[in-house]
Nucleic acid binder design. Sequence first.
DNA 1: CGATTTATTGAGCGATTGCTCAAAATTGGC
DNA 2: GCCAATTTTGAGCAATCGCTCAATAAATCG
Lengths: 198, 198
Amino acid sequence: MPRATLHNRQDSLERALHLFWQKGFHATSLKDLERTLDMRPGSIYAAFGSKDALFQEALERYARLGLVELERTLAEYDSPLSGLAAYLRKLGCLRDQELPSRACMLVKSLLELGEREQAALGKAEALLEAMEACFVDQFRAAKHAGELEPSADPVRLGRRLQAEVMGLRAYAQREVDSQAVHALADDMARSIEALRLS
Amino acid sequence: MPRATLHNRQDSLERALHLFWQKGFHATSLKDLERTLDMRPGSIYAAFGSKDALFQEALERYARLGLVELERTLAEYDSPLSGLAAYLRKLGCLRDQELPSRACMLVKSLLELGEREQAALGKAEALLEAMEACFVDQFRAAKHAGELEPSADPVRLGRRLQAEVMGLRAYAQREVDSQAVHALADDMARSIEALRLS
DNA sequence: CGATTTATTGAGCGATTGCTCAAAATTGGC
DNA sequence: GCCAATTTTGAGCAATCGCTCAATAAATCG
């Protein structure tokens, strides 16, 4: 009985994510979204509620995809430390890929949003926390596997890695050449590998 | 013969810097600036030209103050490596101070600005490059002083430190407790000190 | 073929954006 | 006190902002 839906919601969300990731929340206007989603304002609001709500959905999707990618990388390695090092080296290729932005959308949001967008800001913080928790878990696994010395603190190591990833990706956002980012990521990866008990 | 200028230009710039650093470029409206500077639009435009130009001046002032602070810290130590470690530990106190933002304004700008604000974006990049160059110089000095092993690469070390500072300050922007930021900064400082030849 | 249901449209709302400029206010020199 | 020089004002511009909603289009039902 109803009219068939013309737009695939998932696909629209993907396009919106692409746009928000590239331009940030404030610099993305509804006109931009209308163009990119090929939808009129009414349809966008019927599907997503508001610009803010759409942004939050995009944030969550971004983080989910990022976590999947992280865990996929980690799963390729038997050694937890090797998995983390490999993840860093993958990030070193950021400058080569064609992406909306080289910087992490969560960090972009963390730095851009203020009190007026508290809901989205809180979501970004929570998702960063989840990312950090994943790192901590991985270091815990490394410790359990005997890769780390007994005195090692997985919480501090996870926190440090989180900060390094934030830094690496912010650095990659600069107009530096690809080789520099690769070298930086490699240096960070070596630091992780240096934690391994020989 | 002219009418005396009512507002101190330097002071106005300082207030604008405070506001831009806190809210970012896009989220700061002229109404906000009018309120904070206690100036009407005409005066602001007479003094600074445009919102974009004012932002660029604020960026430059921010970076100049930051570089001064960095060099002041470094000058307190005879050992280049100790100076860098001390700088990191100072950043570890970010969460305790009352600042417009814990994140670096240059990084916030780097992540927020797009093609439409290319001039300001380019300025932020150049200022970050200057910061990195300062780090590189310091590592060069450390190498010359025999603190680093001969094979050490000051360019890579400077780049790495730049990324760590970016990461540390982005991390500090999160709603984490002060102790975590202190621990993170300390871990980073220890990494620097670990480079020292015993 | 209606009838019904739902998706989509797009003109346009009130508010806000960055900004302009003629007028008013304030000074110092004569 | 008056003129000239300069700063400051603030109403208000055109454009854009996020968003609403009555009208329209499309699809499935009997």
